[in-house]
Design a protein around this nucleic acid. Structure first.
Lengths: 337, 337
DNA sequence: TTGTAGGCGTTATCAT
DNA sequence: ATGATAACGCCTACAA
């Protein structure tokens, strides 16, 4: 224990003393600098091993001006979509020796800027995942957040590396698919209003539907239970197809339909968004818009990594999602009940 | 830019100079020490604001001897079980101002000790989630890992705060349930052999089954696809009930049975472990052993938090899981096909 | 090749 | 109440 009461750990000086060299030499050995005499290398390594020495990451961080940490901020860790992105980033960054700090804003747009700054302060860079905060707020923060990259979100007047998904294209494919099956009235179970993804899906849905289909929108949420609770209303609206804000909502709706004895897809079709791993194991298998989630994470890291190396990041990418037609969508039944 | 090429940010000295006080006073103001003259507080705050000053977390970490970070090491971030634990920890720790570093060992027992040490080095404490490493390895590391807590894993000869689940009790309940429904032959779709949870489930299964039921064990894995692939074999063994290592495996098996036209639960029953959120939204709803995952995370943090405060941690807790009987289990059909 | 010394940005001790 | 000053543990010119 030192005077402040903490357990003093083995420092570079201890090793230097034991190996009878200077701290600088120990540092060089630990950092694999080839300019050190073989004999000294041996002595240092032996001393370090026997003392159980490991450089303090914090001290290294201070001295080097980089922590080897990046942060990722997600609106909800409970959502498989963000978990997958996190996973993609964690794996990609881990392969290059970077560790990941996670922060969950719990879908609270007001908390986001604070959390972002706070976590960014502890790290070398930041991945903002579908941030809920306003454009102007983010723009105002941008300088303090740098370097950072944006996932699934564009911020007006801000030139930041971005990876995203063309949800509008996905939605168009959904509408075309449903219209082709004979549906005339679809219901959208909307996600959080603060979510840009939801806005995009909703806007492009309105467009796609123009003069082709009737559309009802039900405010819902982003979790299974939300979909479960909202599915009944969608039916009352007279829709023969339900589009969920995401797979969780769609799967929740599906469960509700089944509980109510409504056959899917014979009576009602269901479509989701994201293609989380569970979508293909659902019964019936969920038709959904497949988003390359882990790849999104990898690409985000690719850009952040480049900036951290002082290079120009690759150009922004926007994935065009693929409609994965499975078993929850089918031709509309024309006979009455 | 300084000589090393990094962008010099605003430091405590800059603020001190601007406010015409000493760095010490700035520090006191930033840390809300009440002993500072109101006028100086004002000047400092104003200077800090106009310069956009924020204390460096790294420097604070070095000076204070604590980082405000904890690490969690999980075998697989792709598994909802660990995601939930992570979430529980992240929320609980976040409420007390701690941030969480995540590390994924990708189910590789050999990597674990290194990762554990490495991440622990950057943080104030560690949560080891169902570690795959050997007892002796962990015991040898214990000193360097301290303080840390163990989730779902006991290590022989090691007195470390632990939170766990009595999987044996869960398995007994499963066997009693299935036997009560008339099943005589059950198949277990085993998880990773390095997983202690799997060992425990398998051992207690062997015990519970003694003289009551015939048991087949199929090596499998821990993901949906593993269950999907292994389900066929279980049927060939003649089992009328399938117990998945976890819900992912069970849900995968369920999907396979459905694809093969095998009715559940009329023809075959299926049981999972964990009760991940999807279990209740499956069709049919999955019977499973409910493990309080987020609570596990919270309790883990509770213990780590206590140790970090220098207090004695609460006693170890072992949750007794509850068998959640839903719709994938039923009486065995006695008639032949 | 090796060592010395200054700096990284804060906090905390000890005078004043 | 405030201000020097010495840690905190490491890295890296620069000198030897």
């Amino acid at each position: 224990m030192d005077s402040v009461g903490r357990v003093r750990s083995v420092t570079i000086r201890d090793v230097a003393r034991a190996a009878q060299v200077s701290p600088a030499t120990v540092s060089r050995v630990m950092n694999r600098q080839s300019t050190v005499d073989a004999e000294l290398v041996r002595r240092v390594q032996q001393a370090a091993a026997s003392l159980g020495y490991h450089p303090s990451a914090v001290a290294q961080g201070l001295a080097r001006g980089r922590t080897g940490l990046i942060a990722i901020l997600v609106p909800d860790l409970g959502n498989p979509m963000f978990q997958s992105v996190l996973r993609g980033i964690s794996r990609a960054a881990g392969a290059e020796g970077y560790r990941v700090l996670v922060s969950d804003s719990h879908e609270m747009p007001l908390e986001e800027p604070l959390l972002a700054r706070e976590t960014r302060l502890r790290t070398d860079g930041l991945v903002l995942c579908a941030p809920r905060a306003h454009d102007d707020e983010l723009a105002a923060l941008a300088e303090r957040l740098n370097p950072f990259v944006l996932v699934n979100r564009h911020v007006a007047g801000l030139d930041v590396p971005t990876v995203s998904v063309d949800y509008a294209a996905g939605m168009r494919a959904v509408v075309a698919h449903l219209a082709g099956l004979g549906h005339r009235h679809v219901a959208y179970l909307a996600g959080p209003m603060a979510s840009v993804s939801n806005r995009q899906r909703l806007d492009s849905l309105h467009e796609s539907v123009q003069g082709r289909l009737e559309l009802s929108v039900r405010e819902c949420g982003s979790m299974q239970q939300d979909g479960y609770d909202a599915a009944g209303g969608a039916l009352e609206d007279g829709a023969t197809a339900i589009i969920g804000y995401n797979d969780l909502v769609a799967l929740g709706a599906l469960a509700r339909l089944q509980a109510a004895g409504v056959e899917v897809p014979e009576r009602v079709s269901v479509v989701g968004f994201d293609d989380i791993p569970f979508a293909r194991y659902a019964n019936p298998m969920l038709t959904t818009v497949a988003v390359p989630q882990e790849e999104l994470g990898r690409e985000a890291w690719e850009r952040l990594s480049a900036v951290l190396r002082g290079e120009d990041p690759p150009a922004d990418v926007c994935f065009t999602p693929r409609l994965e037609v499975r078993s929850t969508t089918g031709v509309v039944r024309t006979d009455t009940l």
